[in-house]
Every structure is written in structure tokens, then in C-alpha cells.
Simulated scan of single mutants.
Amino acid sequence: MPPLLSSADVIAGHDTALVTPPVAVQANDLGGWIAVNHFHNRSLWAQEDLARRTLAADAEIVANKRAIDRHNQARNDAIERIDEVLLSALGLVDAATLANARLNSETAGSMLDRISILGLKIAAMREQTLRGDVDDAHRQACGERLQRLVQQRADLGNCFDELLADSRAGRAYFKVYRQFKMYNDPQLNPALVAESK
């Protein structure tokens, strides 16, 4: 079985990406889908910040909200692709062969998505610790939060690594859980259905 990415590899890739402006990427392998997911998380983060402006024109906020929906859909699609690629690489496509394995309630792709988001929180909180326009109490409080976020990401990374190890050993498995984001579907969102009549 080929080696899979460890959480340390993923975290390093996320952190490296954060030092440059986000650029849309194409995926054709596990690393590519992880990068796609991280790109859409970064884009969502930026759009969420913009959507909370209080002095922006309504049309700008509407544009932000629509961008949020697009990025969120793409983010979830990437999570599903990550899970598909990992399950294939682990030989777990047929879960019927795993009668003695426990089903993990969270997928590996969802864990990597959370690791990505924690990376964004860490970067943003680190910026707060470096601000010159706030007092020491603000920087100290943010420094304490930063330490907690770093620990949370490390803990989640360990859980991801353990899930993959347990999956390889036949002790655990996960499934691809389809998100079925109904709000983006013109046939399932009641407001969009009503608009089309």
C-alpha cells in the first residue's frame, strides 16, 4: 500500500500556502484535493469577513453571500473527494469486509477540513499577537488563544493519523458522507423553486 500523507505533511502544506495569496488549484490526487479544500476555506474566510461589514452597500454583501455559498459547496465537494481517494488508497471501498472494524463518526476528509480551518484561525490569531495598535492585554489574550489553537490542531492531527493507522490495520473505517447542500440546488431549495414558477 502506498504511503499516505501524515497530518504533519498536511499542516506544513497548509501553512506554506498561507504565506502567499490564495490561488485556485486543480486536483488530480490526494494532495491536490487537500489544496483545493484549503483554497476554498481561505476564500470562505475572506468572504465571511467581508460579509460582516456594516458600511458596505447591500449589493456588496449579497455578492459576498453568494461567493460564500459557492466556496462552501466547493469545500464540501473537496471533502468528499478526499474521502473517496483515501478510502480507495486504503482499500476500504467495500466496507462489508470490515465486520470487526469500528465505524469512525467523522471522516478523514472532514478532519482535514477542520485542520485547514484551524490553520486559518492560527494565522489570524498570530496576526493579533503582532498588532501594534492594541494594548499588551489584547496581545497576551490572543497569545493564549493561539497556544490553544495550536494544541487543538496538533490533537486533531494525531486523531487523523490514528484513524488512518487504524483503518490500515482493519480496526476502523469511515464512509463518504454526502453533504447534499440543498440551499444551492434549484430543485431542492424551496425559495429557488418558488422563484422558478
Score class of each variant (00 low, 15 high):
residue 145 R to S: 03
residue 95 A to I: 12
residue 37 N to L: 14
residue 62 V to E: 15
residue 4 L to K: 04
residue 65 K to N: 15
residue 55 L to E: 13
residue 71 H to V: 04
residue 96 A to W: 06
residue 85 V to N: 00
residue 56 A to L: 08
residue 120 L to I: 08
residue 151 Q to G: 02
residue 62 V to C: 07
residue 174 F to S: 03
residue 117 I to T: 03
residue 53 R to E: 13
residue 193 V to Q: 13
residue 146 L to K: 00
residue 8 A to K: 10
residue 20 T to C: 08
residue 85 V to P: 00
residue 181 K to W: 08
residue 171 R to Y: 02
residue 193 V to P: 01
residue 34 I to Q: 01
residue 124 A to P: 00
residue 48 E to R: 14
residue 114 R to T: 08
residue 52 R to V: 05
residue 180 F to G: 08
residue 173 Y to W: 09
residue 158 N to G: 15
residue 121 K to A: 09
residue 123 A to R: 09
residue 30 L to W: 02
residue 104 N to L: 12
residue 109 G to Y: 03
residue 112 L to C: 13
residue 110 S to Q: 13
residue 118 L to E: 03
residue 15 D to V: 04
residue 39 F to S: 05
residue 105 S to T: 11
residue 118 L to A: 03
residue 25 V to Y: 02
residue 177 Y to P: 00
residue 84 E to Q: 14
residue 21 P to H: 07
residue 58 D to A: 15
residue 117 I to G: 00
residue 64 N to P: 00
residue 51 A to R: 08
residue 50 L to V: 04
residue 53 R to I: 03
residue 8 A to I: 04
residue 36 V to L: 08
residue 138 H to T: 09
residue 21 P to T: 10
residue 180 F to L: 13
residue 100 N to L: 09
residue 76 N to E: 15
residue 41 N to W: 06
residue 49 D to Y: 12
residue 24 A to L: 10
residue 151 Q to V: 04
residue 49 D to S: 09
residue 187 Q to P: 00
residue 116 S to P: 01
residue 82 I to N: 03
residue 77 D to M: 08
residue 123 A to I: 00
residue 92 L to G: 03
residue 117 I to H: 01
residue 117 I to Y: 07
residue 194 A to L: 13
residue 146 L to F: 02
residue 86 L to K: 01
residue 196 S to C: 06
residue 183 Y to N: 14
residue 57 A to N: 07
residue 167 S to G: 12
residue 102 R to C: 07
residue 118 L to R: 01
residue 28 N to T: 15
residue 4 L to F: 10
residue 107 T to P: 02
residue 134 V to Q: 11
residue 13 G to D: 07
residue 40 H to F: 10
residue 82 I to L: 05
residue 30 L to K: 06
residue 1 M to H: 13
residue 3 P to V: 14
residue 189 N to T: 08
residue 22 P to H: 10
residue 94 D to R: 09
residue 2 P to I: 11
residue 73 Q to I: 07
residue 150 V to C: 02
residue 192 L to Y: 07
